[in-house]
């Protein structure tokens, strides 16, 4: 019995040492660009991009396998930042993704106070208590839609951010129409 224990212990110790040394000396440096992109992304891991989380999406973007407009919560500003970091030109007119900012909204009539949405919310943007109506704090919601999936009564909906005097802005002047050349 002692032999067996000794063998396994030695084996375990040697392999452990080997792994520890390998982790120290054969370390693969993470691409700094991935870290940069991860820092830019919202970090709510909502999965609207089709990846498991923001980290994976960042890797895909760095490799060039994902387009820059896959993140709805990030919106237009994020695309601009990403394009600047990755050194690419981004033409907004080609983008198919909806970049209109969205917010979650609780329909008061159908909310049963089940608390599932605020447990799912990564930004603590939903407040409420069991069997009490819940509500979304607009300034904390980034539109990740994680709460939509867990709501049993479909009382949560995504709505467009309302235009108010604080976020209203001038539209872009229409481009000059092609003028007929003088004959």
């Amino acid at each position: 019995m002692i032999e067996g224990i000794a063998t396994l212990a030695t084996l375990g110790f040697t392999l452990g040492l080997f792994l520890a040394l390998a982790a120290r000396f054969l370390k693969v440096e993470a691409d700094p660009i991935v870290d940069d992109i991860t820092a830019m992304l919202p970090g709510s891991n909502c999965g609207q991009c089709g990846f498991a989380g923001c980290g994976q999406a960042a890797e895909a973007m760095a490799e060039g396998t994902a387009t820059l407009d896959i993140c709805p919560p990030g919106g237009k500003g994020l695309i601009e930042n990403l394009a600047a970091r990755l050194g690419v030109d981004w033409d907004f007119s080609n983008s198919t993704t909806n970049t209109v900012p969205m917010l979650a909204y609780v329909q008061e009539a159908t909310c049963i106070g089940c608390t599932r949405c605020f447990k799912a919310c990564p930004t603590d943007a939903i407040i409420g208590a069991p069997k009490q109506m819940h509500s979304v704090i607009d300034s904390a919601c980034n539109g990740c839609t994680l709460c939509i999936d867990v709501c049993p009564t479909e009382c949560l909906q995504m709505v467009e951010v309302k235009t108010t005097l604080t976020n209203w802005r001038w539209n872009k002047p229409l481009p000059l129409a092609q003028l007929p050349l003088a004959a």
Binding site: G43, G75, G77, L78, P122, T123, S139
Partner: peptide, 19 residues
């Protein structure tokens, strides 16, 4: 708008980390 969005993003990051 960009400034407002940046402020909101930072705030949301802080919330996510806090959570």
């Amino acid at each position: 708008i960009r400034g407002q969005q940046q402020q909101k993003d930072d705030e949301i990051k802080r919330l996510i980390q806090g959570r």
